[in-house]
Simulated scan of single mutants.
Amino acid sequence: MTDAKADATEDRPEIGTGVVDLLGVLAYGELSAFDRLAEDARTAPTLSGRVALASMAAAEMGHYGLLERYLAERGVSVEEAMRPFMRHIDAFQESTAPRTWLESLVKAYVVDNLAADLYRELAEVLDEEPRELVTTVLADTGHSAFAQREVAAAIENDAPVRDRLALWSRRLLGEALTQAQYVVAESDGLAELIVAGTGDLSGIAALFRKLQKQHTKRMQALGLG
């Protein structure tokens, strides 16, 4: 490390385990979202759909870069910050591989919004700078509106497709909440953020009930309630 880089790092305050863990799980989530969207773009039934998802994938990598830079400036390797969360996120992705274009859209819609709900709640107790970073990274890349349009058009006059996607969304919710609970349970840093925000670990159950309610509202808006 050069003297200039060393001085820049020394000027930055140290960050706690909770912040490192939250930014680490966010970074791996962004990297996984890029992989998923890039793959979905290749299977898009229209050129406009391919362009839309490719653009969203690029935005996810932009968010990843913000997290990597923030951590590096504070002497933290993004790879090390992500490592504890890879197993559970990879397991979720493998167990919920979509079979169709519409299943891909619903999966991204469900998972991205659930993750955003959870991480925004955890970020509430952070200092202003990392909280604003989390808010920026969780900004919608346009996927929600795109998924709503595509799914709404597909299910408008097709009850079997609507019912199949509704079942798929419920499965995704169950799998996502299970993996999220594993992630929180195995991360002292994330557990500390929940305790800081709710007062004790009993707040975890209340938080996940809140996530389920928000999910239900979104599914109703999507026409899959």
Rank of each mutant, 00 (worst) to 15 (best):
A58Y: 06
A38K: 00
P45Q: 04
H63Q: 09
E60H: 00
P98D: 00
E68F: 02
I89C: 07
P84W: 07
S32K: 03
Y64L: 12
Y64F: 14
L31I: 06
A54N: 12
S77M: 11
E80R: 12
R50L: 15
M86Y: 05
E73F: 13
E39H: 00
R42Y: 09
F92A: 01
R87I: 11
A27K: 06
I15A: 14
A58T: 11
A58W: 08
H88F: 06
M61L: 15
L37G: 02
V78K: 08
M61S: 07
H63G: 09
F85C: 07
S95Q: 11
S48K: 07
L22A: 13
D35Y: 14
Y70Q: 11
I89P: 04
A91N: 02
E94N: 07
S48N: 10
M86E: 10
Y64E: 02
S95G: 08
R99Q: 05
H88K: 10
V76W: 01
A91V: 07
R50V: 10
M86V: 09
G49M: 08
V19A: 06
F92C: 04
L22W: 05
S55R: 13
I15R: 15
V25C: 06
H88L: 09
M86H: 11
A52N: 08
P84N: 05
Y70W: 12
D90H: 09
M56N: 06
V78N: 12
A91Y: 00
T100L: 02
A81C: 05
F92E: 04
R99D: 05
E39S: 02
T17F: 00
R50M: 15
A58E: 14
G62A: 11
L37R: 06
P84R: 07
R50Q: 15
L31M: 13
V76R: 08
S48C: 07
R42K: 13
E14H: 13
G16P: 06
L66V: 11
R36V: 00
P45Y: 02
I89R: 06
R50A: 11
M56S: 01
L23R: 05
I15E: 14
S77K: 13
E68I: 04
A54K: 12
V51Q: 13
G75W: 13
E30Q: 15
A27C: 12
S95W: 01
G24L: 03
D40P: 08
S55F: 12
G62R: 06
T17K: 06
Q93M: 00
T96D: 02
G29Q: 01
P98Q: 00
T17Y: 00
V20W: 00
M82S: 10
L23M: 09
L23C: 05
S95M: 09
V78S: 12
A91G: 10
S77E: 15
F92S: 02
P45V: 07
H63I: 06
A91I: 04
M61Y: 09
V20P: 03
S48H: 02
A33F: 07
R69C: 00
S32E: 10
M86D: 12
G24N: 01
R50E: 14
F85P: 04
T43W: 08
T46D: 08
D35Q: 11
L23H: 02
P45H: 10
R83N: 15
R99G: 11
I15N: 10
G16S: 06
V78Y: 13
I15D: 11
L31A: 14
G16I: 11
